[in-house]
Simulated assay, not measured.
Amino acid sequence: MVRFRFSKGLNREPDPKNVKLHIQSGSSSRALNAILPLVASGQPYEAHQKTRTFTSRYSKSGQYDTAIDVLFQSARELLKVSQHCPAGDQDLHHYIGELLYKDGAFDAAEPHFLASGKRDSARSLANMMIEWSAAGGALGNFALRGTLLYLQNGNIVGARTFISQFIAQPVLNFCQLAVLTCQRANGEKNKVMHESWVRLCGTYQSKGGVLATRETLQEIATLYFAIPPPRTQPDNPLGAMISSMLGDSLTHPSLTIGSRILQVLEPWTGPTVRFPLLPEL
């Protein structure tokens, strides 16, 4: 319902320059009264269609708060019956998901990231699942939850993006590649593995996190690849470590950090790698 606010004066007709439209609060009630009974009666498809129709109508008329309310409440009810609401704009779903994620409302953000289907939403969902798992629960269950729900929605790109981001956060890729690289090491004799270890460490240490200042990596470098430790305590441990590993060959184009590690290890990955590094599509 639209209410008109008139400017001061005795005009009987509203002045178009001074008219402000005010949408009454609670205007989502009409849409929800039509959608939610369908969910309760076991008609999720019909609920999807009505949600799409109402959301599009509200968005086109600039009633974004109403559209958000309809999407949120409809998606929440559909989630309860193992359905996910694909209605509405992808960017709007992503935006709502990000807001809820930042507020710590993980369970409410999840259906919006799934409904969005965007790659950015899949990455945000993976990061959120990692944080969510810290509150309790098996990490693998959260990985399955995101992957399978994207596949259930028919979104293979979303599933691949999600699991790639998820795996990268717990540094599982580093673990598997570190084992394979050390397995093929032969001290100073195997230059290929020597260079592969340098690239592997450089790639993951440059991202920060738990691997940023691990002295253990230097010990492994010495044990398997005969790379001596730095002579003095460096101001920049990562830079000194890489310099000591590469010496004067640091600028060699074949040693670009992180660029060819998978090419080097590809002949040995095979079925032994449980969590392959998935490329972006």
Rank of each mutant, 00 (worst) to 15 (best):
Phe4Ile: 15
Arg5His: 08
Arg5Gln: 08
Phe6Leu: 13
Phe6Val: 13
Lys8Leu: 09
Asn11Gln: 06
Pro16Trp: 09
Lys17His: 10
His22Ser: 09
His22Tyr: 05
Ser27Cys: 08
Ser28Val: 10
Ser28Ile: 03
Ser28Pro: 12
Ser29Thr: 13
Ala31Met: 03
Ala31Tyr: 03
Ala34Asp: 11
Ile35Met: 06
Leu38Asn: 00
Tyr45Trp: 09
Glu46Pro: 11
Glu46Leu: 12
Lys50Pro: 09
Phe54Asp: 00
Thr55Lys: 02
Ser56Val: 10
Lys60Gly: 01
Asp65His: 03
Ala67Tyr: 04
Leu71Asp: 05
Ala75Asp: 09
Arg76Phe: 12
Arg76Pro: 08
Glu77Met: 08
Lys80Cys: 06
Ser82Phe: 14
Ala87Pro: 14
Asp89Ile: 08
Asp89Phe: 09
Asp91Val: 15
Asp91Phe: 11
His93Glu: 07
Leu100Gln: 08
Tyr101Asn: 13
Asp103Val: 04
Asp103His: 07
Asp103Gly: 13
Asp107Leu: 03
Glu110Ala: 03
Pro111His: 04
Leu114Phe: 14
Arg119Trp: 10
Asp120Gln: 07
Glu131Arg: 14
Trp132Leu: 10
Ala134Glu: 15
Ala135Glu: 15
Ala135Phe: 13
Ala138His: 12
Ala143Leu: 14
Leu144Ser: 11
Arg145Ile: 07
Arg145Ser: 08
Thr147Glu: 10
Leu148Tyr: 13
Tyr150Phe: 15
Asn153Val: 11
Gly154His: 13
Ala159Val: 14
Ala159Ile: 14
Ile163Phe: 04
Gln169Met: 10
Gln169Pro: 00
Leu172Thr: 11
Val179Leu: 12
Asn186Cys: 02
Gly187His: 00
Asn190Met: 01
Asn190Ala: 02
Val192Asn: 04
His194Trp: 06
His194Met: 07
Arg199Pro: 03
Arg199Ala: 11
Arg199Met: 15
Cys201Val: 15
Gln205Asp: 00
Ser206Pro: 08
Lys207Cys: 06
Ala212His: 03
Thr213Met: 05
Arg214Ser: 12
Glu215Asp: 07
Glu215Tyr: 03
Gln218Ala: 05
Glu219Ala: 12
Ile220Thr: 06
Ala221His: 01
Thr222Phe: 03
Tyr224Ala: 07
Phe225Tyr: 00
Phe225Met: 02
Ile227Met: 09
Ile227Asn: 00
Asp235Thr: 06
Asn236Lys: 00
Met241Ser: 04
Ser244Ala: 05
Ser244Lys: 10
Met245Ala: 15
Gly247Gln: 01
Thr251Lys: 10
Ser254Cys: 04
Leu265Phe: 05
Pro267Ala: 01
Thr272Phe: 11
Val273Ile: 15
Pro276Arg: 15
Pro276Cys: 14
Leu277Arg: 10
Glu280Ser: 10
Leu281Trp: 14
Leu281Pro: 15
